[in-house]
């Protein structure tokens, strides 16, 4: 896990709302190695998706501002729109949350899987279609050759997500972003799709960045995890360390709120309050209003990530202290 493929440094994405710039993602930094799964976890609206969209430069140009540095294979990317278009789908690809709507209803599935190859590799239609059938087999679609000629509405949700994965993998990207790839699927299919992603990541030596709000998914597939709250990473480290000893009270809350079959539904913990809206962020630690451990300093000082043990960082004044 030393061969870093993607480095994100101080990524800050702001949106122009009501005459002011409000950061939706602030100072996010992380590394992603080849053959590694990094999970970004957090509640809805904490900036997980915006982080990925910023890296891919998929946000609308008007009304958004992206700062910071992104390096793919050590080379800075992300200023020239045309160069980014060539990278997307070729060296970095993305899988969306909704397999039901992310495929074009009027085009055959095989053609849609073949398209990235025609766009980025310049393959002829016939060659790309052949390759598409091979990709559909790779993601475990039975009788791929005949199914390639079908339309998306003839596929189930799980099968469509497999098609999306085949599309994303067509050009063998180095980094794969998966934005809640299993949220829209039922639990048994979730496990299959996650297993497939893991296998493919390992076979191709990709870096997989998995966005999820489910700690269960994190435990199942991730090597490292980054917990995001209100646009910033509040705790990051190897999965086993975080699950065994969470430092940030927010991480703790997330872990306590995983439903477990041996407990009653009433016993599920829920963190009081809600994520503050983007234009009403508190001054100091943004988790302070909901935090059980809050001290006075939390309301004025914005905590930074401090290394607890090697590779495990947390940003909490009470638990992790301030950098010396």
């Amino acid at each position: 896990m030393t061969d870093t493929v993607l480095q994100v440094r101080n990524l800050t994405t702001s949106f122009y709302i009501g005459g002011e710039w409000h950061p939706a993602v602030r100072g996010v930094s992380f590394d992603l190695a080849r053959d590694e799964t990094l999970a970004i976890v957090g509640e809805s609206g904490c900036g997980k998706s915006v982080t990925v969209m910023s890296i891919m430069r998929l946000l609308p140009e008007a009304g958004s501002r992206i700062e910071g540095e992104i390096l793919l294979d050590g080379v800075p990317i992300g200023t020239d729109p045309e160069a980014m278009q060539k990278l997307r789908g070729d060296r970095m690809a993305m899988i969306f949350q909704e397999p039901m709507t992310a495929l074009n209803p009027v085009l055959r599935v095989g053609f849609q899987v073949a398209e990235p190859l025609m766009q980025h590799r310049g393959l002829s239609r016939e060659a790309a279609m052949e390759e598409a059938v091979r990709l559909l087999e790779l993601v475990g679609i039975p009788s791929a050759k005949s199914r390639a000629r079908e339309y998306p509405h003839q596929f189930s949700g799980g099968m469509r997500q497999r098609v999306m994965i085949a599309m994303a993998l067509a050009c063998e990207p180095e980094v794969l972003f998966a934005d809640e790839p299993t949220t829209a699927l039922d639990v048994t299919i979730q496990a299959q799709v996650l297993g497939l992603l893991e296998d493919l990541r390992h076979d191709k030596g990709m870096g997989l960045l998995l966005i999820t709000h489910s700690m269960g998914v994190v435990a199942a597939v991730a090597d490292r995890v980054a917990v995001m709250y209100a646009g910033a990473i509040v705790e990051t480290g190897p999965v086993d360390k975080i699950f065994a000893g969470p430092v940030h009270p927010y991480t703790e809350g997330l872990l306590r709120s995983i439903p477990r079959p041996d407990r009653d539904a009433q016993d599920i913990y829920s963190i009081p309050g809600a994520v503050p809206s983007i234009d009403k962020m508190p001054k100091g630690c943004r988790f302070a209003p909901r935090c059980p451990l809050k001290i006075n300093r939390c309301e004025t000082v914005d905590p930074v990530l401090v290394e607890i043990t090697p590779g495990h960082f947390a940003a909490c004044l009470v638990r992790a202290g301030e950098p010396s």
């Binding site: 998929l58 997307r88 789908g89 993305m94 709507t101 398209e115 990235p116 766009q119």
Partner: peptide, 19 residues
Amino acid sequence: AYIEACRAMGFSHARIILF
């Protein structure tokens, strides 16, 4: 969503419009 997916796959404007 599928047009956004097209952009995420790095398709050219011409390809998105035509296909």
